[in-house]
Design a binder for these strands. Structure first.
Lengths: 213, 213
DNA sequence: GCGTTATGAATGAAAG
DNA sequence: CTTTCATTCATAACGC
């Protein structure tokens, strides 16, 4: 079962109430700005990536890969929906590459380093590395850098008022959606991290292939 | 209700700002029900624990304890959700802008005029005008034209010879991504978010470059 | 209140 | 490199 961040079902609160809330402070919902929402999403996404990396790291160092190679493969996996479920049909070739969270992270890193000059040589290298985490082509890598730069550039005229300098073009980007195995167990020690959260066991997650149930 | 993920380090929380924001009634907010909040909490908490578990696992199996026992502590990288620059006016419409009838009419008009491809210059102009009738950004205008064209185009080749199975034009798409495979779009859109730890990787912490091949 | 539909937004790829 | 196209994702609006 996966909990999507964008759950629309329970929208029983309305904007009007929001304002009211700030004044009265009484109603059952919480109010968040879009930014906050995004931030939260991002936070989760980061964890997703982090987990993925940890798993990867673990598998690299340990000879006892208890975990399936990547959470991403399940978590926010990027498998071509069509291809994956292609039941003996001519799995239509993927027309559009979609970076794995891992790939994206690597790319983003390289980009940030500035060393990411679309040097043909470098491209090949990067492609090499990325291929470890999913299908990829040099062309895609090239495109990615092209787009990345082009878009980060045309990004000012959004709002004239900004608090101050920000992360510039080297922004963190991650995607992938969390998954949740939510269920038994309890790690009280972590409750302080967030909120008096409910059950959040994961042991089983580490022993099973099925991360999501 | 502060959604702090980590206490230490990046403590630049500015709760005040948040409240202020809600008072300003920028209605740029979102409302979440307790259930939704709960979901988020769970998700994040689970990831937090998962990461920690992974680290622990790693340290147990490997003789190279690269990480301090908890990501939560290093997770300093996990900024405070509430921090996002929520100054009253910064970025007003983060999400889905909806054109007012007036704006739409104007846009439709311009589009019809065959101005063809609105160059950046023109876009700015149009944006100017539209802003008279409601909030709008250049980006939105740009998007609008992009979509307008793309869609009017896709309408053409709609062969009337539709035999049968064709109705599933748009509906299916939504269902396809049933569970988590989801993914999400925007990354660049997040660039404006203040992000304490730009690089969400951990390899630099672990110096895992060597492992990643 | 839940499922669709229409459409704003993001983004890989390609053209210019 | 810059601009445009095509595809896809996410959600406001709408119908039941």
């Amino acid at each position: 079962m996966c909990l999507k961040l964008t759950e629309r079902g329970e929208d029983k609160v309305v904007k009007e109430e929001m304002e009211q809330e700030s004044l009265n402070g009484t109603f059952d919902g919480r109010v968040m700005t879009e930014e906050q929402m995004e931030t939260l999403r991002k936070q989760i996404a980061i964890y997703a990536v982090l987990c993925d990396q940890l798993v990867f790291l673990h598998n690299s160092l340990s000879s006892v890969p208890l975990l399936s190679s990547g959470l991403s493969s399940m978590g926010g996996g990027y498998f071509d929906p069509m291809v994956a479920s292609s039941s003996a049909q001519g799995m239509s070739t993927r027309h559009r590459w979609t970076p794995t969270s891992m790939q994206l992270q690597i790319l983003e890193n390289i980009y940030k380093e500035g060393s990411g000059t679309p040097n043909p040589r470098r491209i090949k290298e990067i492609t090499m590395e990325l291929s470890e985490h999913g299908e990829i082509t040099e062309k895609s890598v090239y495109n990615w850098f092209q787009n990345r730069r082009a878009r980060s550039k045309r990004k000012q005229p959004q709002t004239t008022t900004i608090t101050s300098g920000q992360a510039d073009d080297a922004a963190v980007t991650t995607e992938e959606r969390g998954s949740c195995g939510g269920d038994s167990g309890g790690f009280e020690s972590y409750e302080h991290i967030l909120f008096p959260s409910p059950d959040l066991g994961i042991e089983h997650l580490l022993n099973t292939d099925k991360f999501i149930d």
